[in-house]
């Protein structure tokens, strides 16, 4: 449903992505693994149209979105949860969800605030709290919930595990697994291998803007040397 073909991105003067290619199938979970600054966030931003690819092609659900504006890409059903979460600080939880709301799509049971509150029980208790007064973990939940309000067919998650306590991570894992059961594809950017291993099926290792390796998570789990080289100390 999503295919990325030989995409190059420049960040100002820096050549941030070199000929990046991968694809994501319906209902699949793929993780882009790499260290800080490897190009994970850049890849996701290029997909959602916040950065422009200078060459290459990005196709989502049969539409060429390489040069599309963000809002059109989002309306095609590609959801994005940024690394910094970017909760609207003055908007309440309910209002943040309202911003994300889009018409329902065929084949996807429409998300409602009630369904999302069931998925993230913490949020249900703070409907009227402004985003600025939430903890990091709560903001992460809200960022995902807000994106789901758009009934996406695929979701880009940028380092959702960053800075979260283990108990919150468990909730996050449950939520992402629930998404997959709905048939929503997930593209995860992570540097936390153990977190990624709990949810993803396939992995791609990225370093200095290049895809260095791709394969299944089992393969990666079995190869300590590979992990150490691209992720470890």
């Amino acid at each position: 449903m999503l295919s990325v073909e030989q995409v190059n991105v420049f960040y100002g003067r820096a050549h941030a992505l070199h000929e990046v290619s991968f694809s994501l199938a319906r209902g699949e979970t793929l993780v882009l693994l790499g260290r800080n600054g490897a190009g994970k966030s850049t890849t996701l931003k290029a997909l959602i149209g916040l950065l422009r690819a200078t060459s290459g092609r990005i196709v989502f659900e049969g539409h060429d979105i390489t040069r599309s504006e963000s809002y059109r890409i989002a309306r095609l059903g590609l959801g994005y949860v940024p690394e910094e979460r970017r909760i609207f600080p003055d908007l309440t939880v309910a209002e943040n969800l309202l911003v994300g709301r889009r018409a329902q799509r065929d084949g996807i049971a429409p998300w409602t605030p009630e369904r999302l509150f069931a998925l993230f029980p913490n949020l249900a208790e703070m409907r009227d709290r402004p985003g600025a007064r939430m903890s990091g973990g709560e903001q992460q939940m809200l960022a995902i919930a807000r994106t789901l309000m758009g009934n996406p067919r695929a979701v880009l998650l940028d380092e959702p595990s960053e800075g979260l306590a283990p108990v919150i991570l468990d909730q996050l894992v449950a939520a992402i697994r629930a998404l997959r059961e709905q048939g929503v594809a997930v593209l995860l950017a992570e540097q936390n291998f153990r977190f990624a291993a709990r949810i993803a099926e396939r992995a791609a290792l990225i370093e200095t803007g290049r895809i260095a390796w791709s394969g299944t998570l089992q393969e990666l789990a079995a190869d300590g040397g590979l992990r150490g080289r691209y992720l470890g100390v």
Partner: peptide
């Protein structure tokens, strides 16, 4: 530092 278990955990993620 390279052999330190806590450092390795942080870099690979805590279970």
């Amino acid at each position: 530092v390279r052999e330190n278990q806590r450092v390795r955990d942080i870099y690979l993620g805590v279970e």
